[in-house]
Computed example of a mutant assay.
Amino acid sequence: MATPGRIRDTRFRHGWRQAMIRFASLGSGSKGNATLIEYHGTRLLVDCGFAVKEAEARLQRLGIAPDSLDAILVTHEHGDHLGGVARYARRHGTPVWITHGTFNAWNDPNVPALQRFSPHDSFRIGGIEVHPYPVPHDAREPCQYVFAAGGQRLGILSDAGHVTPYMRAMLSDCDALMLECNHDPQMLARGPYPEALKRRVGGGLGHLSNLQSAALLATLGAGRLQHLVLTHLSEVNNSPDLARGAVVAALERDEEWIVCAGQDQGLDWRELA
């Protein structure tokens, strides 16, 4: 596994205690993405691709007060991930963590508190160690994350055109994984997208297909996994049944903990034992 970089501490805000990582999706897809992670009172949001009122409503649906986030961590500058970050941060005074390249590509960077970082350097926010890692995507300096706390690891991988050895190393030994299954290659090829968009989505800087993610899982194995959440499914070029079927075939296991996060309903809380 890749060696984490330096660790930086930020203020520990929430007083209540919790013994395990838990996570949820506010929504996942081309119309907006946001993931919530919580451990021992530390509460992080990865991306906010929703309008502020919509993000607040989805947080409240999960029982979370919108002003209780310790940070928003950004993956890259595309609107379905970054679109609501600045307005949300200004409204609630939420610190934003972002790579240098993504910051330079951001057209609305005026937020109350900002931390820029390298995707090769790890840091700590409250009780959670954050391990970013670079991914191949058509953005300025995109990254994804592994979160570690209490001996548990939650990996997130989305918006990547292919899998590198470094990505595979970062995602080894995870106890839970949120993994992009963006498209079925045959549906994409036969679908209504213009040819240029098909090449972009299916290219090396685009999005992971069901087959690519299944191949990654086959090499990682599922021995430690308690949860596997399939994310960023295309509503045009994929279906939950196709995505789940590809993953089940690769793992040779059909388990109830293999689920899909939806665009409208996201995914309710999942806990790591």
Score class of each variant (00 low, 15 high):
residue 1 M to K: 00
residue 5 G to D: 08
residue 9 D to W: 02
residue 15 G to I: 14
residue 19 A to H: 10
residue 19 A to V: 09
residue 20 M to A: 15
residue 25 S to M: 13
residue 26 L to D: 12
residue 27 G to P: 05
residue 28 S to Q: 09
residue 30 S to M: 12
residue 32 G to V: 03
residue 32 G to Q: 06
residue 33 N to K: 01
residue 38 E to F: 02
residue 39 Y to G: 03
residue 44 L to A: 02
residue 54 E to Y: 01
residue 58 R to S: 06
residue 61 R to A: 13
residue 61 R to E: 14
residue 62 L to Y: 01
residue 63 G to H: 06
residue 66 P to D: 11
residue 66 P to F: 03
residue 67 D to N: 10
residue 68 S to R: 11
residue 69 L to M: 10
residue 71 A to H: 06
residue 74 V to F: 08
residue 77 E to H: 01
residue 81 H to P: 04
residue 84 G to R: 09
residue 87 R to G: 14
residue 89 A to Q: 11
residue 89 A to C: 12
residue 89 A to E: 11
residue 91 R to Y: 06
residue 92 H to R: 13
residue 100 H to W: 10
residue 101 G to Y: 02
residue 103 F to R: 09
residue 114 L to Q: 13
residue 115 Q to N: 15
residue 115 Q to A: 15
residue 117 F to T: 14
residue 121 D to T: 13
residue 122 S to R: 08
residue 122 S to N: 13
residue 123 F to E: 15
residue 132 P to L: 12
residue 133 Y to P: 03
residue 133 Y to M: 10
residue 134 P to D: 09
residue 140 R to Y: 08
residue 140 R to F: 04
residue 141 E to Y: 01
residue 142 P to V: 07
residue 142 P to G: 06
residue 143 C to W: 02
residue 145 Y to R: 00
residue 146 V to Q: 02
residue 147 F to K: 01
residue 148 A to M: 01
residue 166 Y to K: 03
residue 170 M to Y: 04
residue 173 D to H: 03
residue 176 A to T: 04
residue 177 L to F: 02
residue 179 L to V: 05
residue 180 E to A: 06
residue 181 C to M: 11
residue 182 N to R: 04
residue 184 D to K: 03
residue 187 M to A: 11
residue 187 M to G: 00
residue 197 L to Q: 13
residue 203 G to R: 04
residue 203 G to E: 08
residue 203 G to D: 07
residue 204 G to W: 05
residue 205 L to S: 12
residue 207 H to D: 14
residue 207 H to M: 14
residue 207 H to V: 10
residue 209 S to N: 12
residue 212 Q to H: 06
residue 213 S to G: 08
residue 215 A to T: 11
residue 219 T to G: 13
residue 224 R to H: 11
residue 226 Q to V: 06
residue 236 V to L: 15
residue 241 D to W: 06
residue 241 D to F: 09
residue 243 A to T: 11
residue 244 R to I: 12
residue 245 G to C: 09
residue 245 G to R: 09
residue 246 A to W: 10
residue 251 L to W: 06
residue 253 R to N: 10
residue 258 I to Y: 03
residue 260 C to W: 02
residue 260 C to I: 05
residue 261 A to H: 01
residue 262 G to S: 05
residue 263 Q to F: 00
residue 265 Q to E: 14
residue 267 L to S: 07
residue 269 W to A: 03
residue 270 R to V: 02
